[in-house]
Amino acid sequence: MARLFIRRDDLGLRTAMGEALLPMLVGAMSFLAGLAVAGALASGTLARHWQGDTARAVTIQVPANEANAVPAVLAATRATPGMSDVRVLPVAAVDELLKPWLGDDVAALGLPIPIVIAADGPGGDGSALTASLTRVTPGVLVQTGALWAARVAALTASLRACAAAMLVIVAMVAAAMVTLATRAGIAQRHFEIEIIHGLGALDGDIARRFAARAAWLALLGGAGGSLAAGPVLMWLSGLAAPFAGVAPQSAWPGLSPALWFVLPTLPLLAGGIGWATAQVTVRRWLGRLT
């Protein structure tokens, strides 16, 4: 590793590729990559939470005018295979759920609020349970979390795809920036390159000098971007904590532990992109020399 970076600057690349612009831009890309990776990991956490608890949740609404059917509905529900923890939600709990739409005093409105029965189900769309309960009382309404869980899974998959696309775009933009910086360096040092080419330098000798410089600048930028992403991710994860089912007061609310392994690799990836891109750019340019 030391041989890559502690190299005599024969081509004067510290001057020719000395601007802070490349590390700053790569840093910005690394920052965005950090956000994308965190987003992908967080959506995975969110999906697991929703698919675990929500997919099994079953809610049964019995119309207020059929309240006398509640014991039969409870019995039929308990008799359905896979159903457990079947219970009638207290009126206070139902009022609490309705408060955002109907206000603090739901009872005062005199509305026919249905009786709500909650249970843990086996998953699926609940059609068998619906058919069974409809025979008990026709107005019953069965809702399962499976539909929402499927929607969340689809949303998670699309978020992950977006994050992957963002990472690819970020990598391509970083490579484009390294290409431009390398071309600028070549333009400034073409005379020196031609001299050492004439002295018997291999293409690899010349490309390695540019690649080492580009990799170092990209590594610095990547490190800066990753460091900058840390506090922002902590703030965002605090905002997302309620949706991820963790307490906002926890040390790293909602952030996947995997992120703390991924973030330090971003500078290395940036350095790798810098190295490979500069190698390709310089070797292609050298092709014009005999």
């Binding site: 001057t15 005379f191 020196e192 050492i196």
Partner: peptide, 15 residues
């Protein structure tokens, strides 16, 4: 065709 940013020693050492 000397490299302007290198010393005499480093220019000669280059090959």
């Amino acid at each position: 065709r000397l490299l302007a940013h290198l010393s005499v020693f480093d220019n000669v050492a280059l090959p």
